[in-house]
Design a protein around this nucleic acid. Structure first.
Length: 564
RNA sequence: UGCCUCAUGGUGUAACGGUAGCACAGCAGAUUCUGAAUCUGCUUGUCUAGGUUCAAAUCCUAGUGAGGCAACCA
């Protein structure tokens, strides 16, 4: 089984797990979990966690599994819409939780029992203080807290009070259950943390069965233990919750498992904001067209943009896993899609900003078919036929009346190759009254067909794509670009500003492009490369039979544009 | 003015006391019926100061810088 070269370097979590497996901790089982709260849509940062947790299960098979658990302990923020979208997104990424779908709310009764146990052990008490009083007693970062006057209530009174909390005798905020740990701890999380609060709210799964709900810090470690989780992986901001996690695992009796928590740095991406709160803000303000707007860093957004699951998985592997709060360049994500799509995307000719070309020596009314390669990276992809006639469209960018140095596409008097057709020479530039170039009159050279370079003539430097005017399809194409103009919108905004002031006004441009007729049959959800232009994805929502709508996933790298 | 964690090219990471490597980005060149892809080469790095050691990115001490922490959120 293990004859593979084990020399590949592991991140600190994988090393830890490998050591646990080697030491036969938990009989060598590795059981992880991805535990989102269903209070919003998943984003690319969650993908990192999903790939880690589910990846770990895959890597450590067969004694392994990864649970999908909804951390639904705060009914006022959670909605079923989100539990559906989260499942869809995890599946899309290519992961399978099998039978292991859980909800923290499944454990409410057990969690309540554990709380009673803590009360009986003298490790939890009901506090009657107001929120403000609790806050005041907690101390500060530099000053220790002071005990609540209710801290030394008798076990009997605590049990009675807690039962009455559950029975709904109190209003929200009137009572809380606290773990009795250490009001003087330098770790604020240990200053008698709240473990239950009263919420007269309807829960999306338990309905009105409960009016007290466990806090994350309480429910999470115990849920992990109940599910037999061995390794509970979360992001760095939970680092100082770890002592509380361990306190609960150590002080609650009857837990079937003994998980431990480790933390890693969350993903940060340039030109992106990653918090659910800010994404929600943009959705609500109508700054984007919903959670699945292709400019959003949500899984549903990047899916609609045309990113592939494989490219996201490769990205998540590539960024690594450390405790350093890094900032990854968006360019790396883009590289990952290009790499995937280059190998798999069907090539097609599409002109985003059309300029008419008339080939004056090509017979009027004649239409021929030219054979084009579907994907030079994949011979199996075969060929297709595309019409060619006297009137064509080429990209406006592929012509310059007054060329800059090193421009080797079409210029007045110059020659360029129409890919897979023949070479043309531009003889006349037709302009409208405003001086705008509206048409090029060219001649073609029959001796240059099939890529032939006639002997004794210099090689034509430029090769451009084209579409036959009469057969071209007018298609809506959405040109997406980065959502923000600043690499770090939050940093740039500072304390007083808002990240929204750095929204890129050019993040979406809609054009009517001229496409080769073969794409008429394209359905939603297909990947294409428009040759020399970029990768495009037929929008799954807005495409109609015979009328696809294309989203630009990412542009092709452009060495010429860069040099300018 | 506390506690915790972290610090390797522009960016992300590897090196587990013994040649600082890889990827992205950038820059050249080769190649190309996509200025893409591919191939080749190049530029750029161990936060600072001490110490331990034959040998330190790695261990120790101090400093500096960064991130996190005072919801009845997760």
């Amino acid at each position: 089984m293990s004859d593979a070269p084990a020399s590949v370097s592991k991140d600190f979590i994988r090393e830890l797990i490998a050591a646990d497996v080697a030491a036969q901790r938990n009989e060598g089982w590795v059981i992880t979990r991805f535990p989102p709260e269903p209070n919003g849509y998943l984003h690319i940062g969650h993908a990192k966690s999903i790939c880690l947790n589910f990846g770990l299960a895959l890597e450590n098979a067969p004694k392994s599994r990864c649970h999908l658990r909804f951390d639904d302990t705060n009914p006022v923020k959670e909605e079923v819409e989100y539990v559906h979208s989260i499942q869809e997104d995890v599946k899309w990424l290519g992961f399978d939780w099998g039978q292991n779908l859980f909800y923290a709310s499944d454990y409410f009764e057990k969690l309540y029992g554990f709380a009673v146990q803590l009360i009986e052990k003298g490790l939890a008490y009901v506090d009657d203080q107001t929120l403000e009083q609790v806050r005041a007693h907690r101390g500060s970062l530099t000053q220790p807290g002071t005990p609540s006057p209710y801290r030394d209530r008798s076990v009997a009174e605590n049990k009675d009070m807690f039962a009455r909390m559950r029975a709904g005798e109190f209003r929200e905020g009137e009572r809380i259950l606290r773990a009795k740990i250490d009001m003087a701890s330098p770790n604020m999380n240990l200053r008698d943390p709240v473990i239950y609060r009263i919420l007269h709210a309807h829960h999306h799964r338990t309905g009105d069965a409960w009016c007290i709900y466990p806090m994350y810090d309480y429910a999470h470690p115990l849920s992990d233990a109940l599910e037999g989780i061995t390794h509970s992986l979360c992001t760095l901001e939970f680092e100082h919750h770890r002592p509380l996690y361990e306190w609960l695992i150590d002080n609650v009796d009857g837990l079937p498992g003994k998980p431990y928590q480790r933390e890693f740095a969350r993903l940060n991406l340039t030109y992106t904001v990653m918090s659910k709160r800010k994404l929600l803000e943009m959705v609500k303000a109508g700054l984007v067209n919903g959670w699945d707007d292709p400019r959003m860093p949500t899984i549903s957004g990047i899916r609609r943009r045309g990113y592939t699951p494989a490219s996201v998985r490769v990205f998540c592997e590539t960024i690594g896993l450390t405790k350093y709060p890094s900032l990854t360049e968006l360019a790396l994500l883009e590289h990952c899609v290009r790499e995937d799509l280059n190998k798999h995307a069907q090539r097609v000719y599409g002109v985003l900003r059309p300029l008419k070309v008339v080939i004056t020596n090509y017979p009027e009314g004649q239409v021929e078919e030219v054979e084009l390669v579907n994907n030079p990276e994949d011979p199996e992809a075969g060929k297709r036929r595309v019409p060619l006639s006297r009137e064509l469209y080429i990209e406006r960018d592929d012509f310059m009346e007054h060329p800059v140095p090193d421009f080797h596409r079409l210029v007045p008097g110059g020659e360029v190759r129409l890919k897979y057709a023949f070479c043309i020479i531009c003889h006349e530039v037709v302009k409208d009254a405003a001086g705008e170039v509206v048409e090029l009159r060219c001649t073609y050279d029959d001796a240059t067909r099939r890529g032939v370079k006639p002997v004794g003539r210099p090689k034509v430097k430029g090769t451009i794509h084209w579409v036959s005017a009469a057969q071209a399809l007018d298609v809506q194409v959405r040109l997406y670009d980065k959502l923000f103009t600043e690499a770090q919108p939050d940093e740039a905004a500072g304390e007083e500003g808002s990240f929204t002031q750095f929204l890129n006004p050019a993040s979406l441009e809609v054009v009517t492009a001229k496409l080769e007729p073969s794409v008429a049959s394209a359905s939603g959800g297909a990947h294409y490369q428009f040759e020399r232009v970029g990768y495009f994805y037929t929008d799954p929502k807005d495409s109609r039979p015979g009328a696809p709508v294309f989203n630009r996933t990412v542009a092709l790298k452009d060495g010429f544009a860069k040099g300018k």
